[in-house]
Design a protein around this nucleic acid. Structure first.
Lengths: 362, 362
DNA sequence: TTGAAAGCGTTACCAC
DNA sequence: GTGGTAACGCTTTCAA
């Protein structure tokens, strides 16, 4: 009996400490704190007083175990550092905390092992949803992998949400929030073509990244639409970073490649390209035009400000969270389609100052 | 008896489902999974088989309740979107996952109410530590507030870590990981002065933000050291963003303020300043030199690349996590100093291409 | 309106 | 080695 651990001695105070000290039952304390049950004013006052005195907060783990608990979303990303991520995360986190939800963040570092470990970890945490961010490699393996994740999560009462990734094929319990990637690239390339560019250097990104593939094919479609032959030799794949933009342009210049514009797969790549052009004594946009993709803050901080494709990252985050919240309210079994949802948001070209008709028409 | 819920029917499978199906005791399953206890190979095989079949993962909440559990760090920030944050978060998250710890993220949006709510929420979650990021306003209130947080957290077996914020005064159970803010500003201003600049426009940031105050006073010290009178009229406070950099320079130019260099409180502010200079037909650094602070990726992506002060954000994150991990291993009661720790990392100037001696010596 | 007690899923201690 | 089983802190019927 007296072997029970000392009241508020070690560790945090428990609901029992509060109950004893307030001279009421544990159940009553729980009711007062949950607020979803009628209690007398007197009781409420007594309990709250003690809660203040003890600086008591509920143990979230115990609460979850017993049924209650704050819903939590997990955001998994390759690299926290990307600006695009930050905005999606902001969207998710904002929408989450608006509803009193919590957000967890994990980084995979592009390591499939780690991704799996994280998904399982999140499953252990009993998160309401796992949001996976960013493009994917290797389509087939990806489909298999995500299918497994989706089912595992679903079986555990959670849900998989893919943001900015290809939707899953077949009957898989997952939600995809996507943007019109190809459409944006199409529009961006069209913009370049419409002002007269014909020889454009294309830096789509990693060859095996779905996002990059979509952007490239969107651009190709634009060339076709304009009846301009698309020269595969003008395409240079590489990672989505500043370095690649710089190196690709520098190399092209060195090799004497003839181009009047650069279509970068990312604003950051565009920034690198711009720098390389400058280093070679070329002016932007007088000598060479440049366009990016993403419309992160950097785009408008460059000189000249970058014409690019706006991707509604933050909204995607909000939409993703809303999707899982709605689904959760709808209750189990009331899934939209058996194959999950696929939401796609629009993109649009933001015209700034990095494009100009080519000096000497090709 | 048979009223027990159906095995792996609703929700996720439990350890009991695994035990039954494997024909062993719950305790054995726990042992196999924890791995911290001798078990026969046969038992291990049997259990693992079922675990795979059922795609079972332990319930983290139950585990925490029962004693085990994954330590978790909470990172609280005003705004996820800042590049500096991303790097600190990366440092924390990286170091955390290295140790198998989890990271939670919450945004306060500069709202004290929300900050309090989040700290309490984290307390509920039983996090091992709460890491608060970013400068602070209103020094006295800040001290009081943080003191309260520190004690609450400490009483609950958690710990407060302040990163890039002023340390707490007095006997408060908190750890501060700081950087030599004033020193960096001193060095940066000295650099400007040493190449001959005398009339420098200073854009320190928000007047009431401690970070900005430190940077300003550091710069002032440099002026004193160089025997150059510091003109308060050349200081323009404002928020830490692109817009402010742009506006401040534009206004100064319009008002005919005479300056040969601008000392920006942040790389982003510097970017705005640079743009405004360009818009006014001024060249950087030929006509006006510019320096920033932070050394975020943007700094090297601008043209010309920005000379700035490197702040070891990611390392601060790592150090912060290491500090709490160490403290936790050391066990309760084995705190370093009764007033907590105060670690301060160094900063240094990164010379790039945005500074040049003034065209016409003042 | 309030109290008692049965879980929730794990871990860890105590027997065998 | 392995199996019981009492916590862990809370929510939620079920009674009163």
């Amino acid at each position: 009996m007296s072997q029970r651990k000392a009241p508020a001695d070690a560790g945090r105070a428990t609901i029992r400490d509060v109950a004893e000290r307030a001279g009421v039952s544990v159940a009553s304390v729980s009711r007062v704190l949950s607020g979803n049950y009628p209690v007398s004013d007197d009781l409420r006052r007594r309990v709250m007083k003690v809660v203040q005195d003890l600086d008591y907060v509920t143990n979230a783990h115990a609460r979850s175990l017993a049924g209650g608990g704050t819903p939590t979303v997990a955001i998994l990303i390759n690299n926290i550092t990307g600006a695009a991520f930050a905005h999606v995360a902001q969207g998710v986190e904002g929408a989450a905390s608006l509803r009193g939800w919590l957000s967890l963040v994990g980084t995979t570092g592009d390591d499939p092992e780690r991704e799996l470990a994280l998904v399982n970890l999140m499953r252990q945490q009993g998160v309401a949803a796992v949001v996976l961010l960013g493009g994917a490699y290797d389509f087939d393996e990806y489909q298999l992998r995500m299918g497994r994740f989706a089912r595992s999560l679903d079986a555990a009462g959670s849900h998989l949400v893919l943001v900015g990734r290809p939707p899953l094929e077949g009957d898989v319990p997952a939600t995809t929030v996507d943007y019109d990637n190809g459409g944006g690239a199409y529009a961006m390339a069209s913009h370049l073509l419409s002002v007269g560019h014909r020889r454009v250097l294309v830096l789509p990104g990693p060859a095996d990244l779905t996002t990059a593939q979509d952007r490239l094919s969107g651009a190709q479609r634009a060339f076709e639409a304009y009846g301009v032959p698309f020269d595969p030799g003008m395409v240079r794949h590489g990672s989505y970073d500043y370095r690649h933009g710089y190196d690709a342009v520098e190399a092209s210049l060195r090799e004497g490649v003839d181009f009047t514009a650069v279509l970068a797969g990312t604003d950051v790549v565009a920034a690198g390209a711009m720098q390389a052009l400058r280093a070679a004594g070329l002016r932007v946009p007088e000598d060479v035009s440049i366009v990016g993709y993403d419309d992160i803050p950097l785009a408008s901080q460059l000189t000249p400000q970058l014409t690019t494709v706006h991707v509604p990252y933050e909204e995607m985050g909000r939409v993703a969270l809303r999707a899982v919240a709605d689904r959760r309210e709808a209750g189990p079994g009331r899934r939209r389609g058996s194959d999950g949802d696929h939401l796609v948001l629009g993109t649009h070209v933001v015209v700034r100052h990095s494009v100009q008709p080519p000096a000497q028409p090709a």
